[in-house]
Design a protein around this nucleic acid. Sequence first.
DNA 1: CCCTAGTAGACCGACGGTCGGTCTGCTATC
DNA 2: GATAGCAGACCGACCGTCGGTCTACTAGGG
Lengths: 236, 236
Amino acid sequence: MTAIKTTVRIKRAPAERRAQFLDCAQALFFTRGYDAATVNDIIERAGLSKGAFYHYFDSKEALLDALTERVAAQIVADAEAVLEDPALDALSRLNAFLEQGRQWKIERAPALKSAYTAVLRADNVMLNQRLIDATARVVLPVLTDIVREGVREGLFHPPSPEMVAEILLQMSHARMSVAVEAMARAAAGDLDGAVALLESRLADESAVVERLLGVAPGSVRLVEPGFLRAMLAALS
Amino acid sequence: MTAIKTTVRIKRAPAERRAQFLDCAQALFFTRGYDAATVNDIIERAGLSKGAFYHYFDSKEALLDALTERVAAQIVADAEAVLEDPALDALSRLNAFLEQGRQWKIERAPALKSAYTAVLRADNVMLNQRLIDATARVVLPVLTDIVREGVREGLFHPPSPEMVAEILLQMSHARMSVAVEAMARAAAGDLDGAVALLESRLADESAVVERLLGVAPGSVRLVEPGFLRAMLAALS
DNA sequence: CCCTAGTAGACCGACGGTCGGTCTGCTATC
DNA sequence: GATAGCAGACCGACCGTCGGTCTACTAGGG
């Protein structure tokens, strides 16, 4: 009846296929957004079928979970060296961890702008929330440990280590919208304004963290001289 | 062919109809969730038609916006007396504002439990985010003003008034999940554990705020003796 | 040692059901 | 009779399902 279409079939290692779907989904989710990117879009980009998709993932949402999980796992993997180094005291470890984050941003600078704006779009809350949750699950324990370590070492004097770690993380999430605003300004030609905006935000954050940890001003390095300008210039 | 059904038509003031939709949607969104509650569910509950729905709202999302806007507006309206009272200094105003929040919770205690759990469900991120955004838009300026006022009065010494206000708000949002956990414990019979959990959380938050504002411990009243126990007992 | 029947599971794509949204036209009111 | 308010049949897009196909591998007979 219906003509049987014989398509070329290439078989690959399952893990590879999964990754292939995840890669395509990531690209689409971070540009069009989670809702706007349909399963058909994903399979088209992957050059695979509906059947293949649902062979590897129970649902579109399950794919999102797998994706955010992968991102979160990458973060701790990158930071492992810093987190395990026994030579560091708590403050150095915290600063090294923050530096790691800056490094991470430099490496993926090209993708960052579209990712940030995509994630913050009103119709893309799902992706944003899942990313926040997934990263929080892995980063929050790490931060809490560092703060507790600092307390043991007598370096930090926070009212509550857990709350301070939580606030540190929340501030970095809230910072995204400021970063988007800054990138917009930079794109509009106002590089100085953009730098100033983010710099003052980060200065405020630093002051808050230092106050909470009970350390001297300037101890916590949220911002590195020149970093913001280089970053914002590269992104516009 | 199909028999024409003549339904009784009741004419009402447009604002009233709008409110009717909003009421029904609110009830459904806070129980089933935003995605799960379909437009058909809403119009069925309201006893009205698709045509009526799309006569008053451009889309389902527009309805959500209107709903969150209404909630946010209610919050400032309730708090206006406290916010305008010129007799209060900044610390008293802050405490009065927090007390107002507690009062608000007592009044709507019956709906709170289901609302909290519904809002925090993974598949209900949209509702949660819109509520947070809408309330932030109205509450953040208010909090920032109070903190700035305290600085002028020489009562507060924050590293950054804006950041402190932001943190205050974020903590209260993050608190929701702790509250849900506490309500679960209370429902499981462990009222003491539930009270202890929330009490320690609020103590930590108070300590953080006091440290940030540079005021004496005990100055900020996030928790009132007996309030938590009464609340949790009523909810389980 | 090769050849082949048998099997697991990777992969296909038409189809179903649901849901947000549109459109035509009726109806009560002025 | 004109018009705003409203009814509900209808549309298209989407997610997820399902019967089935095709490839790679394995086991056992020649």
